[in-house]
Amino acid sequence: MHGPANGLFFATCYPILAIIGAPANVVAIIILSRGQCGLSRCITCYLVAIAVSDFLVIITAAILNRIGRIYFRDSVLSTTPASAVSIMLVFATRDGSVWLTVAFTIDRFVAICCQGLKTRYCTGKTAVLVIGLVSTLSCVKNAPLYFVCQPLYILDGVPWFCDRKSTYFTLPAWQAYDWLDRILTPFLPFFLILLLNALTVRHILTAIRARRRLRGTKSHRDPEMVNRKRSIILLFSIALSFLLLWATYVGHFLYVRITGKGYFKCLNFNDPQYILQETANMLQLVSSCNNVFIYAVAQKKFREELRKVLMWPVTTFTGWFKR
Rank of each mutant, 00 (worst) to 15 (best):
P4N: 13
P4C: 03
A5D: 12
G7N: 10
G7K: 10
L8S: 11
F10S: 10
C13M: 15
I16E: 00
G21H: 04
A22Y: 07
P23H: 05
V26L: 14
V27E: 04
A28S: 03
I29N: 07
I31T: 09
L32C: 07
S33P: 10
G35C: 03
G35T: 06
G35M: 02
Q36K: 15
C37T: 15
C37G: 09
G38F: 05
G38M: 08
G38I: 07
L39M: 07
T44F: 01
I50M: 15
I50V: 14
V52L: 14
L56F: 14
T60A: 13
I63N: 02
L64C: 14
L64I: 13
N65M: 13
N65V: 02
D74Q: 12
V76S: 09
V76W: 14
P81N: 06
A84Y: 03
S86A: 09
S86P: 00
I87M: 05
M88N: 04
V90S: 01
R94E: 10
D95E: 08
L100Y: 04
T101C: 00
T101G: 01
V102Y: 10
F104Y: 08
F104T: 04
T105N: 05
I112S: 11
C114I: 12
G116K: 10
C122I: 00
T123Y: 05
A127Q: 03
L129C: 11
I131D: 02
I131Q: 02
G132Y: 05
G132N: 10
L133I: 15
T136V: 15
V140S: 06
K141A: 12
F147R: 04
C149W: 00
Q150M: 11
Y153W: 10
Y153G: 04
G157E: 08
W160Q: 09
K165C: 10
S166H: 12
T167D: 14
T167F: 13
L171D: 15
L171E: 15
D181T: 14
T185H: 14
P186G: 08
P189E: 03
L194D: 03
L205Y: 09
T206A: 15
A210F: 11
R213N: 12
L214Q: 13
L214T: 06
T217D: 13
R221A: 10
R221D: 09
D222K: 05
P223I: 02
M225F: 06
V226N: 02
S231G: 13
S231Y: 01
I232S: 11
I232M: 13
L235I: 01
A239W: 00
L240H: 01
W246M: 05
A247R: 00
T248P: 01
T248N: 09
T248A: 10
F253Q: 13
L254W: 08
G260F: 09
Y263V: 11
K265S: 07
L267H: 12
L267F: 10
F269C: 12
F269G: 13
F269Q: 13
Y274M: 01
Y274H: 07
I275W: 09
Q284V: 09
L285N: 11
S287Y: 09
C289S: 14
V292D: 03
V297A: 12
V297W: 14
K300V: 06
F302K: 00
F302I: 00
E305H: 01
L306D: 04
V309N: 03
V309M: 08
M311C: 08
V314Y: 14
G319P: 02
F321K: 04
